[in-house]
Amino acid sequence: MKHTDIPHEDTIIMTGEAMEAAIHRMAQEIISENDPIDALVLLGILRRGRPLADRIAAEIHRLTGYQAPVGSLATTLYRDDYRSGMGVVKSPKGETHFDFNVDDRTVLLVDDVLAAGRTIRAAMDEVMDYGRPRRIQLACLIDCGNRELPIQADYLGWQVGTTPRDWVSVHLHEIDGEDMVLVEERPAIETDIPPVDLDS
């Protein structure tokens, strides 16, 4: 696929409107699963999980009047790909930050895309190093399959079947200036293997 500024319509799997509806529905589900709601705290996984966590918390507040504390989780220090030499160290885009205690709370992890599940594994390990939550739950905007660990979302915006060649790209207005979710072809990784010519 050629990358252009205006995405091709076929590649959009979620519009801004659908995203708003999904967040509303997820908030309702979170409220009905968490009664009383006031033990709930949210941790958004950086980078795009954080604005999503803020939006879900705002929606919960609109529906119940409860303002849940929201924090950020970086997970970079708990990744499992450093050991195999796959990790690329870059200067971090953000750091874990929250100023509440997780002991005996219900911690809702929020991320944009759930795929392999490795980020969520790292996030759970990180949270457990800060205390002992009563429960950990997971909310994701998109589940695109390709799981490598036995992890599932408790609250899901949209499920889409993808292959490892597909790249699910979540755009949020707080970071990208617009709300939408696209499925694009993964940018080609340069290798010595010549590409297969499908026409011949």
Binding site: A74, T76, L77, Y78, Y82, R83, V89, S91, P92, E95, T96, H97, N101, D103, D125, D129, Y130, G131
Partner: peptide, 28 residues
């Protein structure tokens, strides 16, 4: 040099954790 300095704050935060475990598994 800047990369090293930029990498350090997240590690400073580990030592400053008021509760929980002051450790990460990067060199486990």
């Amino acid at each position: 040099i800047t990369l090293i300095l930029d990498t350090a704050p997240q590690f400073a935060a580990i030592s400053e954790r008021s509760s929980g475990i002051k450790k990460v598994p990067l060199l486990k």
